[in-house]
């Protein structure tokens, strides 16, 4: 199926099995150098990604490392049933989806916007400086960012609360309040990753043919129209691909960040699949259970990616496969 489009030129209306085989061989021979180019990458994926995949089957076992995968007893969907029948499943699902969707909604567009703004800067020097500054927070670990957040927002000595008090307001419990926990996570994420996220878009924008802008200027298109009609379409496929891939890990919200910001007072809104797996699976040495939850998350991701990819293809995009 994948090979139809080009090969049909050979003029066979209804390919028999035999002639199909011939076509395949012809294609292989014709593109042998192309196959040579992809060989190392393909080999890598088969060796380092697919050989260890057997690890997934332990989701259906009561895996004991000592007995190994061959001796460990099979339990079918027991771990999945246990996971789904957990009375907190809904809560975990809600929190995970809420944080993920909020990040998708508010964080995802920002790097695009920022790179468009950067692209509009006339001064190359200024642009260089801003670019080099905004991508730096990516390099700070969540531990450091959690520390800085504490300095800003704590009740005992946080700067923001000090300001509130001096303005005559009461202190606010930012860090232990369920109402603003999700927003806080999103803001942290925006601060840390927006600049880093522009890199890929700036690279895509750099590929735009300058003549297009010239032509647009001749036609009297203003900057907004140029951005809309030239720049944005140039990075559209990157945006679409990133978006689809993000949907793939919609069940992951970033363990470290949540784990560090979570505390007893907010755990009703903070507990997500990742923190749950850490607590119930990893810390307890429950390999099979952890794997089962991971598998569930992956399957959900896969379904979303397939759906999103279908939609993207319908709109004439290349998509992710």
């Amino acid at each position: 199926m994948a090979m139809q489009s080009e090969v049909q030129i050979d003029g066979l209306a209804k390919p028999t099995a035999r002639s199909r085989w011939k076509q395949v061989m012809y294609g292989l021979k014709r593109d042998k150098y192309l196959y040579l180019l992809i060989a190392p990458g393909l080999l890598f994926f088969l060796l380092f990604k697919y050989v260890p995949m057997w690890g997934i089957v332990i989701a259906f076992q009561n895996y004991s490392p000592y007995m190994g995968i061959t001796e460990s007893p099979w339990v079918g969907f027991e771990h999945f049933i246990r996971f789904f029948s957990n009375q907190d499943f809904y809560l975990l699902f809600r929190n995970t989806m809420a944080i993920s969707l909020l990040k998708l909604l508010f964080f995802f567009p920002l790097p695009i916007l920022l790179s468009l703004l950067l692209n509009e800067l006339r001064s190359a020097v200024y642009k260089k400086w801003i670019q080099s500054i905004v991508y730096m927070p990516h390099f700070l670990s969540w531990v450091i960012i959690a520390g800085i957040t504490f300095l800003l927002l704590s009740q005992s000595s946080g700067i923001v609360n000090k300001m509130l008090v001096s303005l005559g307001y009461a202190k606010y419990d930012f860090l232990t309040n369920e109402n603003n926990f999700w927003i806080m996570l999103v803001i942290q994420n925006i601060w840390k990753e927006t600049g880093w996220g522009t890199i890929i878009f700036l690279a895509a924008i750099a590929g735009v043919d300058p003549q297009l802008y010239e032509a647009a200027k001749m036609d009297g298109a203003n900057r907004l129209r140029q951005a809309w009609h030239i720049t944005l379409p140039a990075i559209r496929s990157v945006i679409v691909i990133l978006f689809i891939l993000r949907l793939g890990d919609i069940m992951d919200v970033g363990f470290e960040q949540v784990f560090l910001m979570m505390n007893g007072a907010v755990s009703n809104v903070a507990d997500v699949f990742e923190t749950y797996v850490y607590r119930v699976g990893i810390q307890q040495g429950q390999f099979s259970f952890s794997t089962a939850v991971g598998l569930f998350k992956s399957v959900v991701g896969l379904i979303l990616v397939i759906l999103a990819n279908k939609v993207a293809k319908r709109f004439g995009e290349e998509g992710v496969y």
Binding site: D88, G264, Q286
Partner: peptide, 18 residues
Amino acid sequence: DLLMGPDFNKKIEDMKIK
């Protein structure tokens, strides 16, 4: 406890904090 302890403990600890 291996299976369900962590969930119980979390509920208990969260309630204590609250």
